[in-house]
Each structure stands twice: as structure tokens, then as C-alpha cells.
């Protein structure tokens, strides 16, 4: 297996671990936007920050052992945080864009 493909596979496994929490907090942000529109920027931002801290807490408190899985595959804690932030921003941008698109047409 090519090292790059191997890395991508590990990233996907990690993303699978956090995606459910990620989507929940993205949907909360979308719900906020649906109700408050223009004034929703700060609450959305903070709901995402809180969501991220919640994911980090859950991971450290209940899945700490899982870190060794990633460490053994060469991923450090900082790498995992970067992947989590990047995937969160990416998925939020996609979901929120789709949400706004439908909101515009409705």
C-alpha cells in the first residue's frame, strides 16, 4: 500500500470516529441560522467552537486508548487535532452551503 493511501485511510478512520458529533453541531449551527439569519454568525461560530471542545473532551475522556492506534500509525495528537479542525471546516462549509442553497429556493 502506498504511504499516501495508507495515510488517507487512517484519516478516514479518524473522521469516521468524529463525524457524528461533527454533523450534530453543524446542524445546530444551521438551525440557528434558519431562525436568526444575519445575526447568527457569532452564535454559529461559538456553537462550532463548543462542539469542537465537546468532541475533544469525549475523545480524551472516553476514547483515550484509541490515540495509541493513531500513534502506532505515525499520527501525533497535533496531527489529529489538525485533521479534526480541517474536516470540521470542510464538512461545515459543504453542509451549510447546501442548507443556504435550499433556504434560498424555498
Amino acid at each position: 500500500m502506498h504511504p499516501l493511501i495508507r495515510k488517507l485511510k487512517v484519516i478516514l478512520i479518524f473522521y469516521r470516529d468524529i463525524v457524528s458529533y461533527n454533523i450534530i453541531f453543524t446542524l445546530i449551527a444551521c438551525y440557528w441560522y434558519f431562525h436568526t439569519r444575519a445575526s447568527a454568525t457569532m452564535p454559529m461560530f461559538w456553537s462550532k467552537v463548543l462542539g469542537f471542545l465537546f468532541i475533544a473532551y469525549i475523545f480524551y475522556e472516553f476514547h483515550k486508548q484509541k490515540l495509541y492506534f493513531y500513534h502506532n500509525l505515525g499520527f501525533g495528537t497535533k496531527d489529529l487535532i489538525f485533521i479534526a479542525v480541517f474536516s470540521d471546516i470542510l464538512s461545515f462549509t459543504i453542509i451549510f452551503s447546501v442548507f443556504r442553497f435550499f433556504l434560498y429556493w424555498l
Binding site: 486508548q65 495509541y68 500513534h71 502506532n72
Partner: peptide
């Protein structure tokens, strides 16, 4: 563990997800 093919570790309670 960040070294290429460096060190791997089996913790007491395992590491597999």
C-alpha cells in the same frame, strides 16, 4: 512514534479500535 518506521507500542489495554 513519529519517526518513519520508528517505534510502535502495545499498551496494556490494547490499541485497536
Amino acid at each position: 512514534f513519529r519517526e518513519t518506521n520508528g517505534v510502535q507500542y502495545l499498551p496494556q489495554n490494547g490499541y485497536l479500535t
